[in-house]
Write a protein that binds this DNA or RNA. Structure first.
Length: 650
DNA sequence: CAACCATGTCATCAC
DNA sequence: ATGTGATGACATGGT
């Protein structure tokens, strides 16, 4: 399983590189993370093959995956060939079989004309008149089952730099790799699949050996892809397949005739794979039906009811194994479906946060950052020192996550450290006068600390008003309110003729604070007040940070509780499904055993008693008939205990 | 007017 | 020893 997973991952990366060569982007990391459908193609537009905006590079690098970035240069062809060679040098069972499947999936040019107007014009009618974008679209849309056909129907593709690369790639890979790499990959599957799956896969190999049959080739490729996915543990894909199972009752030919074009696949990324995977699964089911005519349709719906199980009890053992496989797959599918739902919900939540952040940042960008900082700090230091530093505790609210950690870094600590630069300037201006400067200036560039007492009072009021009200409004009522609220330490400082604002007292570094205490001949009461103001101011910030941390912790814990609760529910449902499946399989095995034993005869020609014999499957796959082990051991043990008791009595 | 919430303040501890 | 952050507890004011 791990080997298959490894091969699958490597192949997926190679597929991504190859698809990027023709201008198609495959969201590989989303699949590897298990959140989305295995292949999510993002169409860059009709001209994606030529105009390749590397918009996803940042995301790919952000997520830690090194998806091959697209090359927008005009010498793209040479880079493509070089990369293609590099890909070819890669060893191991390759994944391009899936690429082949995608390419084989393409509706041919003739079929495309019948498919509808949603796609571009046919290349035959627009030869030489198409823009490079149209050519690129044709490359992606009219890729027929064989690369040779591509080059025949689109001979002008070689004119474009990317078209040449794409054509060359198709021409060399589709025909060659389908033959060369299908069988090793299938053999890999055979090593990990059940007997029934092996038979079906062998059928696929047999079909592959016939080069004239293109449609069966398509079927097998799709089946191969489906089986390969089923080998891995990426069960969310199975859930997607299961969702489509009831809708998949068409025969193989209809499935092929309704094959999805690459254009369709690229237009709707998420839903497309549902359709594609569903059809793939339908072909698999249909082929299994041809192999095992007795298979019930109920099995395809993974209904694990005991009645169904008993109804299938008379089937050959292999079919029962197939049934059990389906049932068990349903078990995992159900659980993984739930998991997928929860993961998608979580993902939606994250996306919502992203959009919220984006909107918020858009709004914030139109506002003066200083005003924002004031607003931010307003929620924090609301009273005398409300201006706060450039990094107030409230600033941590900007980050939706890990705010508690950020607060430690950006909260009170940042508050004090960031504003540390202010007093240093202010001390230089000790003799200067408090001036009714711009509020934001008072917050950020306030160099006037000391002032005569007769100027200190209005300056303090203005300073505080600027701190509190300027970002919001210049309302006089608000000013009066602020004057009434600022009081306490600020009023005390005023009353004690302290030529510093509370903000300055709180934010100045301790060295400068000590210098102020030593250099101004303050009375002991003034020194005490200064120390109290500083202590209270810092403690106020600390309290705000502490409360915010507490709230964040509560929020985080609540989210974790919800997540764990959802996980518990999912596991319980999965457990119930598993139990039901196990019961059904047990019934089937029991019924099968009875059927087999009823057809066997002992030495005297009498049928074996199902109550006395059972079937045992050895490790080598050999099935042997064994007599039922009666609970003789317990009886003998009971006899022994009785004997011991008797001995003790004696 | 009680309940609740937000905020400030104090005391205390730890670093 | 001192400064400072963190935090519980309490006070206060608004809703």
């Amino acid at each position: 399983m791990q080997i298959a997973k490894k091969y699958f991952t490597e192949g997926l990366i190679q597929l991504t590189i190859l698809l990027s060569l023709i201008g198609v982007r495959v969201d590989i990391d989303s699949y590897l993370s298990g959140y989305y459908s295995p292949l999510t193609e993002i169409n860059l537009g009709a001209s994606s093959a030529y105009i390749q905006t590397p918009f996803h590079i940042s995301r790919d690098t952000l997520d830690g995956y090194s998806v091959h970035p697209k090359c927008p240069e005009l010498d793209y062809f040479f880079a493509s060939r070089r990369l293609l060679d590099e890909v070819r040098t890669l060893g191991s069972p390759r994944f391009p079989t899936q690429l082949s499947a995608w390419l084989v999936h393409q509706v041919s040019a003739t079929d495309k004309a019948d498919s509808g107007p949603s796609t571009s014009n046919s290349t035959d009618s627009n030869t030489g008149l198409e823009s490079p974008e149209d050519e690129a679209r044709d490359v992606s849309e009219h890729l027929p089952a064989s690369g040779q056909e591509v080059c025949q129907t689109n001979p002008e593709l070689g004119q474009g730099p990317c078209g040449a690369g794409a054509c060359g790639f198709l021409k060399e890979d589709v025909d060659a790799k389908v033959k060369e790499e299908e069988e090793p990959a299938l053999l890999t599957q055979l090593a990990h699949s059940s007997t029934l799956e092996q038979e079906s896969l062998l059928e696929g190999i047999t079909a592959l050996s016939n080069p004239t049959r293109h449609h069966p080739l398509t079927i097998d490729l799709d089946q191969h892809w489906s089986n390969l996915l089923s080998v891995t543990d990426l069960d969310d894909l199975d859930s997607l397949v299961t969702e489509r199972l009831p809708d998949l009752d068409a025969d193989i030919t209809s499935a092929i005739s309704h094959d999805v074009s690459l254009h369709d696949a690229m237009v709707s990324s998420a839903g497309v794979f549902d359709v594609a995977s569903g059809r793939t699964e339908s072909r698999t089911i249909n082929q299994q039906r041809t192999l095992f005519q007795l298979e019930s349709t109920g099995s395809s719906h993974s209904d694990a009811s005991p009645g169904m199980a008993l109804g299938l009890a008379a089937l050959p053992f292999a079919s029962v194994c197939n049934l059990s496989g389906n049932v068990s797959s349903h078990t995992t599918l159900g659980g993984c479906l739930d998991e997928a739902v929860f993961d998608q919900i979580n993902q939606l939540g994250l996306e919502g946060l992203d959009t919220m952040d984006t909107q918020l940042m858009d709004c914030l960008e139109s506002i003066d950052p200083r005003v924002l900082e004031d607003l931010d700090s307003d929620s924090g230091l609301s009273l005398e020192s409300s201006s706060g530093g450039p990094v107030s505790p409230g600033s941590s609210e900007m980050s939706s996550s890990s705010s508690s950690y950020c607060e430690d870094e950006c909260g009170a600590t940042g508050y004090s450290s960031e504003v540390d630069s202010l007093p240093s300037k202010g001390i230089m201006d000790y003799s200067s006068v408090w001036s009714p400067v711009d509020p934001t200036e008072s917050v950020w560039h306030d160099h006037s600390y000391s002032s005569p007492p007769f100027l200190n009072q209005p300056s303090v009021t203005l300073s505080h008003k600027s701190i509190k009200e300027e970002p919001l409004s210049d309302d006089d009522d608000g000013q009066q309110l602020e004057e009434r609220e600022l009081s306490r330490d600020e009023l005390r400082a005023r009353a004690m003729c302290i030529p510093f604002s509370v903000l300055q007292i709180v934010n100045m570094p301790v060295e400068e604070f000590l210098e102020v205490l030593d250099g101004h001949d303050f009375s002991p009461e003034q020194v005490t007040l200064l120390r109290d103001i500083r202590r209270r101011g810092k403690n106020k910030l600390a309290a705000q940070n502490c409360r915010k941390r507490k709230l964040d912790a509560i929020t985080g814990l609540q989210e974790e509780v919800d997540r764990l609760r959802a996980q518990r529910d999912r596991l319980l449902r999965e457990k119930q499904l598993t139990a039901k499946t196990m019961g059904a399989v047990g019934q089937q095995i029991k019924q099968l055993t009875r059927d087999v034993l009823a057809r066997l005869r002992d030495d005297s020609g009498r049928p074996l008693n199902p109550d006395r014999f059972t079937l045992q499957c050895g490790a080598n796959g050999r099935v042997v008939v064994q007599p039922v082990r009666r609970p003789v051991v317990s009886t003998t043990a009971g006899n022994k205990t009785d004997k011991r008791k008797k001995e003790k009595k004696q």
